[in-house]
Amino acid sequence: MSEPHLSESADEIGSLDQVPNAEFVQLFTKSQRRLFLFILAQVSSLTDAEEILQDTNVIIWSKCHQFQLGTSFFAWAGKIATYEILKYREKKRAGRLQFSDEFISTVAAEAIELNDELEQRREALSECLRRLKADDLELIQARYAPGENGLKVAEQLGRPANSVYQSIGRIRKVLFDCVTRRLTAAARTT
């Protein structure tokens, strides 16, 4: 806990020694991916989203006693995340700021609205991955291996970056379309 940005929030953290109960831990762990994706939709950068999630988790953990079991964990945690996103954007305002406040709030609202569909899409994705061609699978695997991005993958493969971006983009679109199709098909048959 020696990170500077963590100690910044130390005053609001309260006691870190408080050990949350098992149900809280379960809700916490269950919500991690969804929280990450909720944040990602608003900041668009994987590394930034990870960092914000981390900061959010520290707050969630420290405030665990404030959470009332039986209420929506995600609604509660999402508010904390939104606050962290705000702080992050404040920090970034000096530098490059990509999207407007209006955009962020619109996207955040829509993300909550769309949650069920997005959840179904996440389920369908694993099936679509299974159906990828071996070569495509390998490439997308390389792209999402820890610490990687398209540029690094291109360097490793010795292929021009643009051609790798092209291929990765194509595979992502294939997956995206596959997921959409599966959902549509499922909706029609059930």
Binding site: L37, L40, A41, F176, V179
Partner: peptide
């Protein structure tokens, strides 16, 4: 949203 969700899910699941 769905596209970024896919992107993030791929990242997360690895």
């Amino acid at each position: 949203l769905a596209y970024l969700d896919l992107h993030g899910t791929l990242h997360w699941n690895t």
